[in-house]
């Protein structure tokens, strides 16, 4: 019996076996994440159009990338994406934290409200988009109906007015994803230690002070997770835009991912679409690194 555990131990210490046991995961990661990444990098260096009847692929080097940075549509859509990300992420963080503070108490009402608030998350974004498109419709929609009833001028409707389209789309995102941040912050709040609060009460701190000087700093790791998660998701937004405005009116809600979709799935220009997608990937990666660095420095 003793010798058996001994061989077992030796088996695991041995380098080769250790890797053998790791290999299923490695193969999985390579097949699912790394191979497609290399593939997309490869085709981004080619002039590769699916609609080309001869299916020729000519190597063009970095031409697709150069084209991307001289393409005004790309630059504009990058700006639009930034506005969308800033709008959704900051508002959702603030609202999510507020809701979490409001509903962290274990009362009957809080429990019921929490479960109701989580419902939007369970609906596919495409469906959410279609529902809101119907709600926003200037001539038949519910929202303009009540706006008109209180004497507001709805014009062409929220989704078709140049100034209103972006806020209207951000509102849809808020409705759907604020609850996620609420849940994350709730989890963070529940895991906070009680001692600092007790000490603060003894020292005569007000509730606002204990929120500002204890809760917020302690929630920083949670906030980092929430921020990263939502920033990345928000950068990749597609379904909501596709279902509500299709990037319109004009191009005021054409986010980068929607433009990539047009290039890839309408023009079937795969090389250029892959180059654009890689640019999006780099932007997200760089932002993530910056966030992590900033928040780690603050914690020290």
């Amino acid at each position: 019996m003793k010798s058996l555990t001994l061989t077992f131990r030796r088996f695991f210490r041995d380098d080769g076996h250790y890797l053998l046991l790791l290999s299923p995961l490695l193969i999985f990661v390579v097949a699912v994440a790394i191979y497609p990444l290399f593939f997309s990098f490869r085709i981004s260096l080619f002039d590769y159009r699916l609609t080309d009847p001869n299916q020729t692929q000519t190597f063009v080097g970095l031409k697709n990338y150069i084209r991307a940075f001289s393409d005004t549509v790309v630059i504009d859509s990058l700006k639009t994406t930034l506005v969308y990300v800033l709008g959704t992420v900051t508002l959702e963080l603030a609202l999510g934290l507020g809701l979490a503070m409001l509903l962290s108490a274990e009362t009957q009402i809080a429990r019921v409200l929490r479960s109701f608030l989580i419902m939007p998350m369970a609906i596919p974004p495409l469906v959410v988009g279609l529902v809101w498109k119907a709600l926003y419709n200037a001539d038949f929609g519910v929202i303009p109906f009540y706006m008109k009833a209180i004497g507001l001028n709805v014009g062409r409707g929220p989704l078709a007015e140049l100034k209103l389209a972006m806020p209207a789309v951000i509102l849809v995102d808020l409705w759907q994803w604020t609850p996620l941040l609420m849940v994350i912050f709730l989890a963070g709040l529940k895991s906070l230690p009680t001692e600092p609060y007790e000490a603060a009460v003894v020292d005569g701190a007000s509730r606002w002070q204990s929120f500002w000087f204890i809760t917020l700093p302690l929630l920083k790791p949670t906030a980092l997770v929430a921020l990263l998660l939502r920033t990345m998701q928000s950068f990749k937004v597609f379904d909501t835009i596709y279902a509500t405005t299709a990037g319109g009116p004009g191009s005021v809600t054409t986010v980068l991912n929607f433009h990539i979709y047009t290039v890839g799935m309408t023009f079937f220009d795969m090389g250029y679409a892959a180059a654009l997608a890689n640019i999006l990937l780099v932007v997200i990666a760089v932002l993530s690194v910056i966030y992590i660095m900033v928040l780690e420095r603050q914690q020290l």
């Binding site: 390579v30 790394i34 191979y35 990444l37 490869r42 080619f46 001869n54 000519t58 190597f59």
Partner: peptide, 17 residues
């Protein structure tokens, strides 16, 4: 080695027709 294999597979995988 695995990364290299993936890279090669990515590059060669869909050789220009």
């Amino acid at each position: 080695l695995v990364l290299l294999a993936a890279f090669v597979a990515g590059i060669v995988g869909c050789a220009p027709a």
